[in-house]
Amino acid sequence: MTVGVRFRTPRLVYARFLGDPPPVGSHVVVRQEGRLYLGQVRTPPTEGRPEGEVLRLASKDDLDRAVRLKEKAEDALYLLRALFREKGLPGKPLLCEYDLEEKALRVHLARLEEKKLPFGQIVKEARSRLGLRVELVLEGPREAAGLVGTLGACGMESCCSTWLQGFAPVSIRMARDQGLPLSPEKISGPCGRLLCCLAYEHPVYEELLRELPRKNARVCAKSGVCGKVVKHHPLAQAVDLQTPEGKVVTVHKSELEA
């Protein structure tokens, strides 16, 4: 069995455990790729593919060390950003994190230009400045927004930088099913990708749409009005019918002929 553990990125890492499962919300020390990291348990036991191993619940010393290393990682981040500007490298360091034993520094990068990142040069320069092993992780637009922290269209802090524990697939069909404007400015987040929240209510809209005739179907109302379905109103359980004369009439589902 495994539990989902979140470090400092939005993505969950599933780590196996021995004995009693660590409580959700507790801080644990996880061994991943031969190094120790402090993370927080975000899920109850589940059948996930293990990417690490929970060694123990975090002690006060572990928590204090993590705070100190977080501050030290901020200094490393400023240094690396200066290095990128100095060398004109096509990327932006977003986040640095030390392992608990300070054996390595993991650097999360965003690609700013459609150019191949010179990973070898970056690692060599960073290692010479910091004096330890450096690992680079290239992040996509959604992951980068979660690491930096942004505001959503709702005016609140974005889900990916607060509580979200992974990215679900989002499609333009979700916006279409919910009757939202298909303008990229209206349905895209600060990351430039489709809003993650489009997926939250989509199962409900799918269920509501099953109760309505499909678009472009020709149906009749009990009142005798017939026409082509041109628009759905899922929440109101109604459709707009366009009559042969070009008039648009809104009809509730209960008023449609079988």
Rank of each mutant, 00 (worst) to 15 (best):
Q40K: 11
E51C: 13
V67W: 13
G152C: 15
C159V: 15
P50T: 12
E51H: 15
K253E: 13
I122D: 03
P213R: 00
V170A: 07
R56M: 08
P234Y: 04
L57S: 14
V30L: 13
E114S: 00
L212M: 02
K60F: 14
K215Q: 10
V204F: 11
E135K: 01
G52E: 11
A145K: 11
G166K: 06
V229Y: 04
H108R: 02
E102D: 08
L180G: 01
F17E: 10
L256E: 08
R218I: 10
L83K: 02
E47T: 12
Y200S: 11
G120F: 11
N216P: 01
L79C: 03
V123G: 00
E114M: 01
L117F: 14
R81Y: 07
E51P: 07
G166D: 07
P213V: 02
N216W: 09
H27N: 08
M1W: 14
Y78H: 14
R35Y: 04
A175C: 09
S254P: 00
G189A: 14
K124S: 13
W163G: 08
Q165Y: 10
A126T: 05
G166V: 06
V5Q: 07
L80R: 01
Q242F: 01
V28L: 11
L18V: 15
L194N: 05
P244F: 11
E102G: 06
L69R: 06
D62V: 06
T46I: 14
K92Q: 09
G179R: 07
L77C: 02
G52R: 12
A58C: 03
L132V: 02
L132Y: 02
K87L: 15
P90E: 03
G25T: 01
V230E: 05
V67H: 15
P50Q: 12
E53V: 15
Y98P: 04
R42D: 03
C159I: 15
S59P: 03
V249A: 02
H108V: 00
P10E: 08
E206M: 10
S188Q: 12
R111G: 08
F7A: 00
H202I: 07
L151T: 12
A199P: 02
L18F: 13
P90Y: 04
G19K: 13
K247R: 11
L69E: 04
G140P: 00
D61F: 15
E157I: 09
S161H: 15
P21H: 08
T250K: 12
L209P: 02
P190L: 14
E207P: 01
V219K: 05
S161F: 15
K115T: 00
R42I: 03
S254R: 14
V219N: 04
R210E: 12
L105S: 01
T9Q: 10
A199T: 13
G91K: 02
L69Y: 06
L130D: 03
R68C: 11
A145D: 10
V248A: 00
G25R: 02
K70N: 14
Q242D: 00
K72Q: 09
G155C: 03
D62I: 09
A217R: 06
E201W: 09
E201K: 09
L194M: 09
G224M: 10
L117W: 05
L136E: 01
T162A: 09
A58D: 04
Q121W: 12
L180C: 05
V204A: 13
A58L: 07
K116T: 11
L18E: 13
R111V: 09
E255Y: 04
T43K: 01
L18W: 15
